[in-house]
Design a protein around this nucleic acid. Structure first.
Lengths: 211, 211
DNA sequence: CAAAATTAATTAAACGTTTGTTTAATTCCC
DNA sequence: GGGAATTAAACAAACGTTTAATTAATTTTG
């Protein structure tokens, strides 16, 4: 069990996450972070050891762990396989859009990160997430409800890709649909709902036999 | 008309593009680029003015311009609206996967870039691309073949998002499907084909009335 | 056509900043 | 009073860019 963090440590993590998501890891200096958090620069090394380890801490705290939720989904008898997939879709939408800043960082670091411990973390996450979706789809196939020849990673790519690209282009989406007047929370609610409907439609069409 | 670039300038652009896509703009130094290209560091400022302008040059040269192609699509009488959408899907898959390094940069810079002239470039690109898809979908709707209540940006998000997320996770996809043995070109061919089939299925299901 | 003059390309070195981290001194709190 | 928290200052290294000197290429000239 890791020691819990102090208020100032959490403040540094939040500030760093915000700046990393705006300017990237390499584009953000420890002085930027410290100044924005109103804390002395040396405290970052003092608390976390280094800028890199601060980033690792952010990843450890914010990485999406849906293991337990999916396990519960699998053994939930009140839902049919398609409904379980629907539930998984909503989990991802919620998980990504309610962690917007972190996921912006994630999108960049997936491409340019060279930090070994973060690479390991990302690999584990991808493998796990893929296994879960695997299990759910296999279940639907065994029950004869889903088609046999499903390209499972492609399904994941559409789910995560659509949500991620929506996240990156949120402003464009808001402007396009003339929703500038909406409050932030309401706009977010609308986007989540539309993503949900949109992706569920896709999943139904690709997974099941009927139209 | 811009003056055409010398061999060494092109060499610098290619080297820079490759390094930016691996380590990001801020994670790549002008010394990195110059050394990798076997050219003196000062030549970057000499040729392009600055590191930032070098990046702008990369964007100007590699940004996807599908205007003409879509214009031809719109007036092509031999294709029905759905076939036109299919053609558009393939354009994007080809455009993104045949410019892998550039699009990795694009994915990062969409999030963290602060360079005004690149922001402008990206905005224009997004607006244009959105208009094209708009025109194509409206055409199908006027002809009564497409549904009325289509969330057009959401269609774009799924197209670009799926292709982009596939690009970022190419290695994972290769491993998952046990295609490590394939030659690079063949693997790329397979991925393009699968993306094509996958996304066209999605588009057909969402755009048209039939199953 | 060769020599001279001019322009362009290339270099190593230096420029002033900024980088992440460490130090040593100080303040704070129990 | 003693251990943790906080500070300003200093550290060397790396950053993007500029400079001034040199070489290469091109143009002008006799």
């Amino acid at each position: 069990m890791k020691p819990s963090l102090s208020t100032k440590q959490l403040q540094l993590l939040d500030t760093a996450e915000s700046l990393f998501s705006q300017k990237g890891f390499d584009g953000t200096s420890v002085r930027d972070i410290a100044e924005a958090a109103g804390i002395n620069t040396a405290m970052i090394s003092y608390y976390f050891g280094s800028k890199e380890k601060l980033m690792e801490e952010i990843f450890e705290r914010k990485s999406l762990n849906i293991k337990e939720k999916v396990a519960n989904l699998l053994k939930d008898d009140s839902l049919n396989p398609l409904e379980k997939m629907y539930s998984l879709v909503d989990m991802y939408i919620e998980g990504i859009l309610s962690r917007k800043t972190f996921h912006r960082i994630l999108l960049c670091e997936q491409i340019i990160n060279q930090n070994p411990s973060i690479i390991t973390m990302l690999d584990k996450m991808k493998t796990k997430n893929s296994e879960y979706i695997n299990d759910l789809i296999r279940l639907g196939q065994r029950k004869g409800l889903f088609k046999k020849n499903i390209d499972i990673p492609m399904m994941t790519n559409t789910l995560i890709g659509t949500v991620s690209h929506t996240l990156v282009n949120l402003d464009f989406y808001k402007t396009y649909h003339h929703m500038e007047g909406l409050k932030d929370e309401e706009f977010e609610r609308v986007v989540k709902k539309r993503l949900s409907v949109h992706i569920k439609n896709i999943y139904k069409a690709i997974l099941t036999h009927e139209s």
